[in-house]
């Protein structure tokens, strides 16, 4: 280990501009730590690749989550609103069954920690898939449960008159949902969805449990190699998450304002 420290140190002394070495001791030491954690041995690439993985997992998990969430919420709402009044028959049974399965899904996903879920996927369900796919599926299926409940609350919040107006124009149930109810519901739940997205982005940090090199994983690897924890964890990981979240919050705010244009 001693040789490595001196190797970092000698490279630092060779490459650092003189004025940095001449800074007060605390500052120049801090610059040395930055060098050691990010520049030496191209360690920044660990963070870049980790960030890439984090974003890829989040993006595809979000797509799965929204698709799954909308589907599950529609089944739940359709059963809750119409199920009991439906005529007996295969249609009613099928909807009852779908609703029942959705409820089981929601209960299990929301009732167990996501870390446990991803470990189960990795070691039991998806043993032959690569880690990235496993993580995407695990987080997507997890997020879907929360999106489903968010969407359900959005759909329930739309006045029954909107449904009646759509149906009385001659739209079927599905078309009324698609053109009239869902666009309004989506607008109403956008803040909650944005929150779920932010939670998802940060939650992917547990992907390290299956050895997937995401952003947080990069921080702990570099920390372990350098015995420097503050710089990689605070500046390499926490700050990047924070900037990402602030950026997406700003983006969603813009979208929200655009969708709300009709209410002014």
């Amino acid at each position: 280990m001693g040789t490595q420290v001196s190797e970092v140190m000698s490279q630092w002394l060779n490459t650092a501009p003189q004025w940095i070495l001449n800074l007060p001791k605390g500052l120049s030491e801090f610059c040395y730590k930055i060098f050691k954690c990010f520049i030496f041995d191209d360690r920044y690439m660990l963070f870049v690749k980790g960030l890439g993985n984090t974003l890829v997992i989040t993006f595809f998990a979000l797509l799965i989550g929204i698709a799954l969430g909308v589907l599950v919420s529609l089944v739940r709402v359709t059963w809750d609103k119409n199920g009991l009044e439906m005529r007996r028959g295969p249609g009613k049974f099928f909807l009852w069954l779908a609703n029942f399965l959705c409820k089981i899904y929601l209960t299990i996903i929301r009732g167990t920690p996501v870390v446990v879920q991803i470990l189960i996927y990795y070691f039991i369900i998806m043993t032959s898939s690569d880690k990235l796919t496993t993580a995407i599926v695990a987080f997507g299926v997890n997020s879907g449960a929360y999106v489903a409940e968010i969407m359900r609350s959005g759909i329930m919040s739309i006045d029954i008159g909107q449904n009646e107006a759509g149906r009385s124009l001659g739209f079927g149930y599905v078309a009324t949902m698609r053109f009239i109810i869902l666009p309004q519901a989506f607008k109403n739940v956008l803040p909650a969805l944005a929150n779920e997205f932010i939670v998802l982005l940060k939650e992917t940090a547990v992907a390290g449990y299956i050895g997937l090199a995401d952003l947080a994983y990069a921080g702990s690897i570099v920390g372990g190699n350098t015995y420097e924890y503050l710089v990689p964890l605070v500046f390499g990981v926490a700050l990047v998450y924070l900037i990402l979240v602030m950026f997406f919050t700003w983006l969603v705010g813009k979208l929200e304002r655009r969708l709300r244009a009709s209410e002014r």
Binding site: D159, G161, Q162, E164, A165, G166, R167, S168, L169, G170, F171, G172, I180, P183, Q184, K187, L259, S262, E263
Partner: peptide, 20 residues
């Protein structure tokens, strides 16, 4: 649905689509 197209309905609370 086919027959409702031929029956216009006007509601007490208008029920216009607020997002359009």
């Amino acid at each position: 649905n086919v027959h409702r197209q031929k029956m216009g309905m006007v509601f007490q609370h208008f029920n216009l689509f607020p997002h359009m």
